[in-house]
């Protein structure tokens, strides 16, 4: 029987008993798509770390912070020609991608990037990864943010 439950090639009606726990698992797996999409590029990972330390950043601030990480230099040494290409890639590629995945929201007028509903999924994934593979990037993002706040 075809009905509205049939989406994306998944036919839930094939299961004799579709219990609550099974659908909960399926939803978790689907939510991982947002996580993988968000974390599939080092600049998006860095941006996600920064978004966890403070929920609102200007696009230029993000570009400059990413430059400090990519070029391993202090913020005052980040010259325009270093952060401008990063700003362009954030504006035209990475931020729209994160907006599509519901990880951040972007205000065209103010150019502010804010946390959105799926950032929490990303946070949980980063907490697992951060202790092992990605610790250096995470600690850099957190350290930069602390310096910024002082």
């Amino acid at each position: 029987m075809m009905n509205d439950d049939t989406r994306d090639g998944r036919t839930d009606t094939d299961s004799p008993s579709s219990s609550g726990s099974e659908s909960a698992i399926a939803e978790d797996i689907l939510e991982l798509d947002h996580v993988f999409a968000a974390l599939g590029h080092p600049r998006r990972r860095y941006l996600s770390y920064m978004q966890l330390t403070r929920t609102e950043w200007s696009l230029a601030e993000l570009a400059k912070q990413i430059a400090t990480w990519e070029y391993d230099c202090p913020e005052h040494a980040v010259e325009t020609e270093l952060w401008k290409p990063i700003y362009v890639s954030l504006y035209h590629a990475h931020v729209p991608r994160l907006v599509d995945e519901g990880v951040v929201a972007f205000d065209e007028e103010t150019e502010l990037v804010r946390a959105a509903e799926n950032l929490d999924q990303v946070r949980r994934a980063l907490e697992g990864i951060g202790t092992s593979i990605d610790a250096e990037q995470e600690s850099h993002a957190r350290r930069e943010n602390r310096d910024d706040g002082d």
């Binding site: 401008k84 290409p85 700003y87 362009v88 504006y91 035209h92 590629a93 729209p96 991608r97 599509d100 065209e108």
Partner: peptide, 17 residues
């Protein structure tokens, strides 16, 4: 200036990856 190239975003025009 490249930062003044705004709407549309490249993301809205093509799957560059």
């Amino acid at each position: 200036d490249p930062t003044k190239v705004t709407a549309p975003t490249l993301y809205d025009c093509a799957d560059v990856s």
